[in-house]
Structure formats: C-alpha cells, structure tokens
Amino acid sequence: MPDLDDLLPSRAAFIRARGELEAANGVKWLTEFDERVRFRLYAAYDQSYMSGHYGTSNLVNNALGSFVSDQSQMRLSHSSADGAFRNEVEPSSTDELLDWLAAIPIVLERFAAEYNGTQSDEEYGFTHNLNPKRFAGLANDVLLEARIGYTFINNRLKPRSDEPLFLAVVEPVEALLTSNSRFAAVETAYQQAQSSIASGQYGAAITSAGSALQTTLEALGASGSNLGALFANARSRGFLMGHDAKLLESYKSLVDWATADRSNRGTAHGAATAQRADADMTLHVVAALIIRLIKHAELQEYTAAPKSVPNVE
C-alpha cells in the first residue's frame, strides 16, 4: 500500500475503505469509468506533452480528434479528447471512451516519430517533445488503482483478460486468497502491493510482495522470523520438499537482482528508486509462488488425511 501519510486525507480514507472491502469480498474488476477516473486519464494525456507548450498540444489534439473520427465505428458524442474525458453534462459512453483512450498512444507515437525535436514555435524556439510511453505508464497506474479491467500492453489498450499473466497468475491467486479466510493477511499484503504499484510506490510494492509470500508460509503453518527460516520449517513439516529450496534461492536472486539493478541507476537506496517493471515482475513471481505453495500444501493435506472406509455387510 502507498504510504498513507503521503496522500490527501480523502484518498487515504478511500484506499483504506476499499482495502477492507476487497479483503472481505475480493477484487472486482470494473468496465465503467467514473468521473474521477476520466479526469485522471485526461491528466495523464496532458502530461505526455513533455515540453508543456500549447503549440504541441494544439497539434496533437487536432491529430487525435481526426484519427478517432476517421477510425471509430461509433457515432461520437464528442469531437475532442477534452470533451470525451471531461464533459460532465454529456459524459462519453464506455465504448466511446475506450476508443479515445486506445487512440492516444497511437497518435502520440506517430506525432513523436515525425515531429519530436523539431521546432514548434519560431519566435520562442520551443521544440516538440512527446513521450507516448509516459502516457501509457500513467494511464496504467490510474486503471489499476481504479480496478478497471483494461491495461496498456506495449502501448496498446487491451482487456486485462488478454494478458497471459492475468489469466495464469492474477485471477487464480485472487480466487485462492479470497475463497479462504485463512489467507486474509496474505490477501491484504498482496492488495497493498497492487495499490503501491498503482500509486507509483514501486519499492513499497516489492516490500509488500515479500510480505505476501511470508504470510503465505505462516498461514500454511510454517514458523520462522524470515523467509529462510520459514522455508526450512515448511520443509520440516512436509509441505515443501528438499528441492523446493530452489524456490527460495530464486526469489532471493530476484530481489538481489532488482536491488542491484536499481542501485546502479545512481542511488544507494535501491528500493526507493524501484521501477514499475521491477515491481510488476516481483509481484507476478510472488503470485505464482503463492499459487504453487497453496496448491502443494493442499495436496499434502489431502494425501495425509485419514480416508474413511465404507462398511461392507
């Protein structure tokens, strides 16, 4: 979870309340964009103008409007991104908003490829400077925090269900954690990691992912003050085998690599400068480990349980 001390009181209260709701009922992925989400997505679009000069924004807005008008198969209620995202009187339908949202990085990429570095204003010497990837990253943060069932993959808007890791890892781990109150603490830590990623707190997300793995082992009955001790105890209890030690080694190597990678970017405080890719990868690896641990433990519990013998008379 992001550091709530860094958030405005209203947002901190919202995140706390949603965390409690999701802990009780699980994560619900939405398809509707409320007013706040639409405004925040438009702000992400606005921030893709790295130069901040109106000459760039006017040209891009015109190009975006032309592209959507030409390519969309819908009868549009708005002719500009500003209207599509921020008109409170006549808000866009979900389908129309998805067209506008999907079009933004496509138009930004084409504009950047042709005009970035060229002069946008002869009098003042401003140059065009757009960053399409910045928009997709900011938009993904908004979509994740709002639990919207869409995400940008390689700058293209896709349903989350189209993402292989979503189907193979995210949905299964959420189903496992939600279905059993035994894993309530694990679910809380996992959701904290998701919320931290959505809020740009990538170092905190990696820390919460580690907490989710640790609380999984504890929920399964292992005891110990750190992951190494927990894995050792889990092996002694029989729900991990000797060769499973490589799971711990792999996870430690991942964290060591991520820390070293971040530290090489110019700071000794690696976790504070974590990148989104580091946090995403760590959380997906931890989710896969959680699934593996729970499924294996359940199998061990099943095989160890006494089997009833029917009476045959």
Rank of each mutant, 00 (worst) to 15 (best):
F14Y: 12
F14A: 10
R16N: 06
G19Y: 10
E35G: 11
R36I: 11
V37W: 13
R40T: 05
R40V: 03
L41I: 03
A43V: 04
M50W: 15
L59N: 15
L64Q: 02
S66L: 11
V68M: 02
D70S: 15
Q71K: 10
R75S: 09
S80W: 02
A81Q: 07
V89S: 10
P91K: 08
S93D: 04
P105R: 12
V107M: 12
A113I: 10
Y115P: 08
N116K: 07
Q119V: 14
R134F: 14
F135H: 04
N140K: 00
N140D: 09
D141E: 15
V142G: 03
G149I: 06
T151H: 13
L165G: 08
L165K: 11
V170Q: 02
V170Y: 01
V170K: 05
E171G: 10
P172C: 03
T188E: 07
A189Q: 11
Q192S: 15
Q194E: 12
I206A: 08
T207A: 15
G210A: 06
L217T: 00
E218C: 14
G224L: 01
G224E: 14
G228T: 09
H243C: 12
H243G: 11
A245T: 06
K246V: 04
L247D: 07
R262L: 11
S263D: 13
T273K: 00
T273Y: 04
A274P: 07
A279R: 01
K295I: 00
L299C: 07
